[in-house]
Simulated scan of single mutants.
Amino acid sequence: MSRVPTAPPPLEPGSRIAVVAPSRPIDESKLDRACSRLRETFDLDPVVFETARREWEWLSDNPRARAEDVMDAFEDPEIDGIIATTGGDDQIRVLNYLDPERLTANPTRFYGYSDNDNLRLYLWNQGIVSYGATLHPTLTVDPEIHPYVERYLRRAFFDDSLGVVEQTTEWTDEWFDFDTEEPREWRDNPGRTWYGDERVSGTLWGGCFSIVKWHLQTDRYLPEMDELDGSILALETSEDVPLPREVRYTLRTMGERGLLERFDGLVVGRPQTYSPGLEWEPPGDYGEQLREAVLSVLSEYNPDATAVFDVEFGHAAPSVPLPLGARATLDPSAEKVRVA
Rank of each mutant, 00 (worst) to 15 (best):
F74V: 05
T193S: 15
D142L: 02
E300I: 14
P147R: 01
L139I: 13
Y113M: 07
L251Q: 07
D32T: 07
C35R: 03
V47P: 04
Y286H: 03
T134L: 06
R39I: 09
S29T: 12
P321E: 01
L228V: 15
R54E: 09
L162I: 06
F176N: 09
S201D: 04
A156S: 14
A133P: 04
V19S: 01
G255D: 00
R66K: 15
P63K: 07
A67P: 12
P283V: 12
R151P: 04
L278N: 10
L243N: 04
Y301M: 11
W214Y: 11
P46K: 01
I17W: 01
R24I: 08
I82L: 03
G88T: 08
A317R: 10
E246C: 09
G287F: 00
D173G: 05
V337R: 01
L98N: 09
E55Q: 13
Q167K: 02
L153Y: 02
F158T: 08
E300T: 15
I82K: 00
D179G: 15
S36K: 15
D226L: 03
R245P: 05
E198N: 14
S319L: 08
V141A: 07
R248V: 08
E288A: 15
T218L: 11
V320G: 01
V241A: 11
G284D: 13
E78Q: 15
P8N: 11
K213H: 14
R66N: 06
D32L: 11
T140K: 02
E12N: 05
R53H: 12
W194H: 04
G207Q: 00
S299I: 14
L324E: 06
Y249C: 08
Y131M: 13
P25Q: 04
D76F: 02
E292K: 09
E279N: 14
L290E: 04
V247W: 00
V212H: 01
S29L: 14
G314S: 09
Q289Y: 03
I83Y: 07
L295T: 14
D72P: 00
N62T: 11
A340V: 08
T250W: 09
S36G: 15
A18S: 08
D310E: 12
L38M: 13
R3N: 09
P13Y: 08
D80P: 03
A326C: 07
E144W: 03
W58R: 04
D331I: 14
E236I: 00
E236L: 10
R327K: 08
W56T: 10
S296L: 07
L295F: 13
D197Q: 09
A234S: 12
W186G: 05
A316Q: 07
V48A: 01
D285G: 05
C35P: 01
R327S: 04
S319R: 10
D32C: 10
D188I: 14
Y286I: 11
L243M: 08
K30E: 12
Y301G: 07
W175I: 15
E292L: 15
L222V: 13
L295P: 10
M71E: 15
L259R: 07
R192Q: 10
P332A: 12
D32S: 10
T168Q: 08
A293C: 09
R66S: 10
R151W: 03
F178H: 06
S15Y: 00
V141T: 14
G269Q: 02
E182P: 02
P5Y: 03
T172Q: 00
R155D: 07
D219A: 15
R54V: 09
